[in-house]
């Protein structure tokens, strides 16, 4: 068995050459192949699961948006205000004074709805959480119905349509897609 006789200089040269070849393979060819598969087989997902209304992109079904005012369902509090150009959370622990104050303020703002939900009191991890819990949606329904001048039953129907259960029956949590819900709401009231 021959032992390697490469000198340090040749080692370096070998390392540089190998590094270049591997960079081309792993940094150019590999992502390009995956990109190609995305183009051909998963075009919608690969380009961001965009939602279009009358041909115009109004958002992504995966990315939450900021909604204010009583006529809309609101998403979760966001550390990034859903700008989309950045992402992240508050990183505050539960017993931090700033966190306690923020939670108290959110609870106060919700007082008019007659209840509260954990996801309404807390910031998401991404700042872009597209979902709220079914409980939080239900909580908001009466005030949205009132602001839009439609019946609670109609709003409940829209919530049900925007609710998805756990993936494959048991993965993750049941959730309501806020953008989808608000788009349905807008469509309904525009018609009426």
């Amino acid at each position: 068995m021959a032992t390697s006789s490469l000198t340090i200089g040749r080692q370096t040269l070998a390392a540089v050459r190998l590094f270049i070849i591997l960079t081309v393979l792993l940094g150019v060819i590999y992502p390009a192949v995956v990109w190609g598969v995305g183009r051909v087989a998963f075009h919608d997902q690969a380009t961001g699961s965009l939602i279009r209304v009358d041909g115009k992109v109004v958002g992504s079904s995966l990315i939450g948006q900021q909604f204010t005012g009583a006529q809309w369902f609101h998403g979760r509090p966001s550390a990034t205000n859903y700008t989309g150009s950045t992402s992240g959370g508050s990183n505050l622990p539960a017993d931090d004074k700033r966190q306690e104050a923020a939670v108290a303020a959110r609870a106060k703002a919700l007082a008019g709805l007659g209840g509260t939900a954990p996801d309404a009191l807390t910031m998401s991890a991404s700042g872009l959480d597209p979902d709220i819990s079914p409980a939080y949606a239900k909580l908001q329904a009466p005030s949205v119905a009132k602001a839009r001048g439609i019946s609670l039953a109609e709003v409940d129907k829209l919530i049900a349509a925007a609710t998805t259960g756990r993936d494959v029956g048991f993965l993750g949590e049941p959730k309501v897609d806020v953008l989808r819900l608000n788009l349905a709401l807008q469509r309904l009231t525009a018609k009426g």
Binding site: R76, A94, A117, P118, T122, A125, D129, E173, K175
Partner: peptide, 20 residues
């Protein structure tokens, strides 16, 4: 921790919840 009003949901996403 999720028995609190905040449900231990600070810094967590709705689609994952506490367990995942």
């Amino acid at each position: 921790a999720s028995h609190a009003a905040t449900g231990a949901m600070e810094g967590k996403e709705v689609r994952f919840g506490v367990w995942a």
